[in-house]
Amino acid sequence: MFQRFLITSLFAGAAAGLIAGILQLIFVQPVLLHAELYESGELVHFGAEAISAHPDLHGFDAMRDGLSVIFTMLTYTGYTLMLVALMSVAEENGAQIDGRTGILWGIAGFVTFHFAPGLSLAPEVPGVAAADVGARQIWWWATVIGAGIAMWLLAFGRNWTMWGVAVILLAAPHLIGAPEPDVFTGPVPTEIGALFAARAFGVGLATWVLVGCFAGYFWQREGERENG
């Protein structure tokens, strides 16, 4: 039984994570490196002279980018383990789990782990001002847990009370508010910060759709093999 969990999570998580790592290197990393030029002071926004929006960036760095791909694969394997655990519980209660329904699970995962916390703690470029990291992590976990329960209630709830609780769980962290910095100190142009957040969300959504689809597919396939 546990084999089915492990095979599904490792295959789906590592495959989606590898694609995510590559997507991040193509779409997110150049924006991050651009921001770091401002963080380090190499470029100065609103300095004496106008700065080109297209500086030379470092190319592929085997150590740094290799570690990024590995950690992306680990991160998405972790997410997939949680997703598959919940898929198994849903299947136990009559839900159909396969590659197609998995796409919906992936979108719900994106909302839970990226969009819900990111709505108030937007994906940050290096160098931005932010509140204490410990406080933000507590808010992040609380928001993710609330959003996860809300997604479950929206999908499997059977009455307005459950759907109402889901809406409250989704809205509450943002009404209470995320930990914010006292003053703004970010040296990075707003164009770069905005592009970074948009790219992080876009790559996150693409990856989560793959995570859900792969997880559903392998879960169904491994189930058929165990039973047949």
Binding site: Q24, V28, Q29, L32, R64, D65, L67, S68, F71, T72, L74, T75, T77, G78, Y79, L81, M82, H114, P117, G118, L121, A122, P123, E124, V125, P126, A130, V133, R136, Q137, W140, F196, A200, F201, V203, G204
Partner: peptide
């Protein structure tokens, strides 16, 4: 796994996972 790759602030882990934490929207 998420705690290790996304949240633990130990220097070695933080440095290795730095870009991923930013790109994945973890508080870094």
């Amino acid at each position: 796994m998420i705690t290790l790759t996304g949240h633990v602030q130990a220097a070695a882990l933080h440095d290795a996972a730095h870009d991923v934490r930013h790109a994945t929207g973890f508080p870094c």
